[in-house]
Design a protein around this nucleic acid. Sequence first.
DNA 1: AATTGTTTTAATCATTTGTTCAATAATGGG
DNA 2: CCCATTATTGAACAAATGATTAAAACAATT
Lengths: 199, 199
Amino acid sequence: MEENKLDTEEKIKAAAARLFTQKGYAATKTRDIAEEAGINLSLLNYYFRSKEKLFNLIMGEKIRQFFGIVVPVITDDSLDLELKIELFVEKYIETLTQNPDLPIFVLNEIRNDPKHFVEEIGANKILMSSSLMNQIRAKNPDINPVHFVMNLMGMSVFPFLSKPVFMASQVVDENSFKALMDERRKLIPIWMNTILGSK
Amino acid sequence: MEENKLDTEEKIKAAAARLFTQKGYAATKTRDIAEEAGINLSLLNYYFRSKEKLFNLIMGEKIRQFFGIVVPVITDDSLDLELKIELFVEKYIETLTQNPDLPIFVLNEIRNDPKHFVEEIGANKILMSSSLMNQIRAKNPDINPVHFVMNLMGMSVFPFLSKPVFMASQVVDENSFKALMDERRKLIPIWMNTILGSK
DNA sequence: AATTGTTTTAATCATTTGTTCAATAATGGG
DNA sequence: CCCATTATTGAACAAATGATTAAAACAATT
């Protein structure tokens, strides 16, 4: 019974995570979640009180997942810049390959509720004061390091955001996209280094 | 009266465009639109039949806006690659500075309804057969040109997608973001060229 | 087996939401 | 000025939706 309890609770969370990330908060109905989880509608409120509380729970996890991947990497003083970039790209592409809907969901919800994001992850100033930033500044003092972070994230994350566009345009299919992302693991670090070298 | 008709019709469209792009289809209520437009709720259905029809109208315009900017550029045979990249970046950053919510809205709705996107803009194969692609292939035959398009779009568009994150993290404010984007107009073409040169 | 606490179910409620409708006001042509 | 058309309004409806409740089923403890 203790086991069963966790079972249904986890079933609801899993179903909610799937639907929320896929369609967003407003488009996801509590009845959809119940059906997807194979449970009675009332159980959702029984375990999580309300749709909103359930959503906040899921969103917190997703935000931590999205940013948590790379925080240990960018803040680790013992890694040099090139290795840091390699790990950053590696981690991101790996995680997003498993969770393609993660970026658009996270970006959407941060836009809808920036405060929750700041509270959720102690977001402020982690990035700016990270050793990554200092290493970038050291390598190329002429350019605002935020540019490089935008480039690094953009090159890693944007393909997943725009995947539906490229798929619909028949530029890629599921397989060739996967192959492209595999190539990018090696290419992005190379590109980032050439960019960092150019003054 | 003819003028007045267009007036209210345009007021509704403008309000709908604002809310739909800001909050998406499901989170936008017809009553919100009516209030934002300062009109009676019934007029929405009077002029546009239904919420969905109004939405499709708006979305079509937004999709054309988002992709229409650059189609003339990437398909123009008379422009060489470097100039093409410059124009591409210039046009995108200019348009998105005026319409910061455009990218996330468009990407969201294409994911929700890829078919509508394909029908709306004759999306397929425009990109792959464009002169841009051939020019990229000519410059660097070793790498799939889709990578460069992803980089070019990613570097131009991703900052606007992630702007709420950087704002909430206090990495940028409204002014410094604007300044960064101005810098990027010049920097992205330089970066793209160094990337294209690296084999 | 009886009792207690927990989980699940079905029915129901109160709001919200998209839409319709009948009535009224405004507009413009004959 | 009158009339037909068009535009606008307020009230109302039906369906959808998040939430609650009371009862039943289940599990565990004594």
